[in-house]
Amino acid sequence: MNPVFLITHEFYPKRGGIATFTEEIARAAVGLGHEVEVWAQSARETAEKPWPFHIRRLAVKGTHGIACQIGIARQLIAQRRRLRYATVYLPEPGPMLAMMFLQYFKTFRPRRLVLTFHGSEILRFSNNHILRAHTRRLIRNATRISTLTHYTQNLLCERFPEAAAKTFITPGALRSDFAVVSSTAPSAPKNRLVILTVGRLHPRKGQLITLEALQALAPRFRSQIEYWIVGTGPGSGKSSYENSLRTAASQAGFPVRFFGDLPDDELDQVYDRADVFAMTSIDYRHSVEGFGLVYLEAAAHGLPIVAHSVGGVAEAVIDNVTGLLVPPRHPAQLSAAFEKLISDSSLRTRLGAAGHDWARRNRWEHSARLLFNPSPEASASPF
């Protein structure tokens, strides 16, 4: 098998869906027998794990800015002889931007180029006429392309028809260490039901929308709940969105707790103490929710889910089976969904039990095989 070079600027210890996706695909590729080298953003040595693959930390901070693009491009140029006969996998937009300008020189093009699109970058690339042309060329040079959902696949092939013949679904799955997750609820009695959101503090993730929907509940329902928020905003300081969220929380009329970022073991404990998971994502400017691995994590803990029916969310949350989906910008319907779950414990149990099984249906090994292993299944037109 040819070696696989996975190039990303969103990798551990950075948290989020793409960071989880890249780590799990790398692990799965090793399990299939590939020699894998991950290029990732800089990090402290103390942050490293005993990886089953080689990791090369680049002198880049991990943004989409020009400095990071140049840093990645320099490494691609310096290592071109190693990459020429290998598979180069670009699982997110940062390294794609770096490769866009090198692809015009044959010496910098790898033997096999594999891409994964998540959603928002499709809108960004297609709405800029310069990036649109470079993206089309990148897609033509790609051996194989994947998306996590049919929604994202449709969006990609609508904006870039060149991708249709080589695009496959590589659905998200649970982290590989989720095998120990228990589906049983905590036995200790609680005075209030816990509504939990886990996600970056950003308008697209909808924490403020969730908070406002909970505030709109009748007093008898508000007296039964508290709202927990896990995650931080961009940068080291508080964003204007986080400030607005904290101001609204101080006037909520029920307890609201901010946990910041949590390591996986502590996050698992928070999931197990919660009763309902809510992430009411919205389309925000050129940013969309392509899937949302966090919905699978919540479902794996047996939590019923409240979400907006936007983007690829309906492929992560099954309406009236694992959770309740509400059209965006319908606050009364959103409040009604929360009211329904707060007042009906049997419904919470039914949705949570279904989600616990649903979250385990996909395997990273299948996605890695589609990405890297030539096979009749992966050679046929998928779209």
Results as ranks from 00 to 15, higher is better:
residue 7 I to W: 03
residue 12 Y to I: 10
residue 12 Y to L: 14
residue 15 R to E: 01
residue 20 T to K: 02
residue 20 T to Y: 00
residue 21 F to H: 15
residue 30 V to Y: 02
residue 33 G to F: 00
residue 39 W to K: 09
residue 55 I to Q: 11
residue 68 C to W: 06
residue 73 A to D: 08
residue 73 A to V: 03
residue 77 I to M: 11
residue 83 L to K: 03
residue 85 Y to Q: 09
residue 86 A to L: 09
residue 87 T to K: 04
residue 97 L to V: 11
residue 98 A to L: 06
residue 101 F to C: 07
residue 102 L to I: 07
residue 104 Y to R: 13
residue 104 Y to I: 15
residue 108 F to Q: 13
residue 109 R to G: 01
residue 110 P to F: 00
residue 113 L to I: 02
residue 125 F to G: 07
residue 125 F to V: 05
residue 127 N to M: 08
residue 131 L to V: 11
residue 132 R to A: 13
residue 135 T to C: 05
residue 135 T to M: 10
residue 139 I to M: 07
residue 141 N to K: 13
residue 142 A to D: 08
residue 144 R to M: 07
residue 154 N to G: 14
residue 155 L to P: 03
residue 155 L to Q: 01
residue 165 A to N: 15
residue 166 K to A: 11
residue 171 P to D: 04
residue 172 G to R: 01
residue 174 L to M: 05
residue 180 V to D: 12
residue 181 V to Q: 11
residue 184 T to G: 02
residue 185 A to S: 04
residue 191 N to P: 09
residue 191 N to Q: 15
residue 192 R to T: 11
residue 193 L to Q: 04
residue 206 G to E: 06
residue 207 Q to M: 01
residue 225 I to T: 07
residue 229 I to Y: 02
residue 230 V to K: 05
residue 231 G to A: 04
residue 231 G to L: 06
residue 241 Y to K: 10
residue 245 L to K: 00
residue 253 G to L: 08
residue 255 P to E: 00
residue 256 V to D: 11
residue 260 G to S: 10
residue 262 L to Q: 10
residue 276 V to M: 14
residue 299 A to G: 05
residue 300 A to Q: 10
residue 302 G to V: 01
residue 303 L to A: 04
residue 304 P to K: 12
residue 314 A to F: 09
residue 316 A to I: 05
residue 321 V to D: 08
residue 322 T to V: 14
residue 323 G to F: 03
residue 323 G to L: 06
residue 325 L to C: 12
residue 349 T to H: 07
residue 357 D to Y: 12
residue 359 A to P: 06
residue 362 N to Y: 10
residue 362 N to R: 03
